[in-house]
Amino acid sequence: MLTIKNLHASVEQKNILNGLNLSIKQGEVHAIMGPNGAGKSTLGYVLSGRDGYQVTDGEVDFQGNNLLELDVEQRARHGLFLAFQYPVEIPGVSNMELMKESVNAVRQHRAETPLTAAEFLKKAKAACQQVQLPLEFLKRGINEGFSGGEKKRNEIMQMILLEPSLCILDESDSGLDVDALQIVANGVNSQRDGKRSFIVITHYQRLLDFIEPDFVHILANGKIVKTGDAALAKQIEKEGYAFLGLDNSAEASA
């Protein structure tokens, strides 16, 4: 599905990723944990193709394609989905308008016929129900005036509608109470079908109680320093990152 080899990336001339290696197979769930500033969010941005995130070395293969050569929108159409940590508010463009365009752009790429308005609405309703997002949120501006939890649920709603093959969840748990966390996790779990793969970026182990990972990786200083299973996440929860020789309180965000 995804193979990252020796990935180096920088932002504003500052090296953030320093030789990251990661291989994800179909249907697997990989959690990426790490202290602040380790490069967790940067990894999501680099994989999605955000401007200003310079890949200086390494390669990324996504389902047989050289991911790094694709435009942002091409990556999305090939099945890569990034759920943002801080989804942007876009008043004036409705959620509905976005998702119609988006779903049909992806369908066109897969050589499928565009959905009719009725078909789209049916799918959109189901996706909203899955994350307990009231239907009128479809008519509102994208994330406009949404609470933190509603924004996160909206991201998962979009993910469900777009049916991607690889989902990157960037701290989809941050700022959520347990109930909201459960809703987000259920939304994600509903999409685990043995084929779809996930990268779950999180600062805390808590989310992994609900979304059980196949692998847990610790990202520090721009590379993966340790890989284990769910037990590794539990150990970090208990002992912090210190046992890996890492500073817990590292400032700056990535």
Binding site: S48, D51, D71, V72, F84, V88, I90, E97, E101, L162
Partner: peptide, 17 residues
């Protein structure tokens, strides 16, 4: 960038925004 991560091409995204 947000709209493009949803598969919408740059020119279309500009119009929408």
């Amino acid at each position: 960038y947000y709209l493009r991560t949803r598969g919408i091409c740059r020119s279309k995204a500009l119009i929408m925004l």
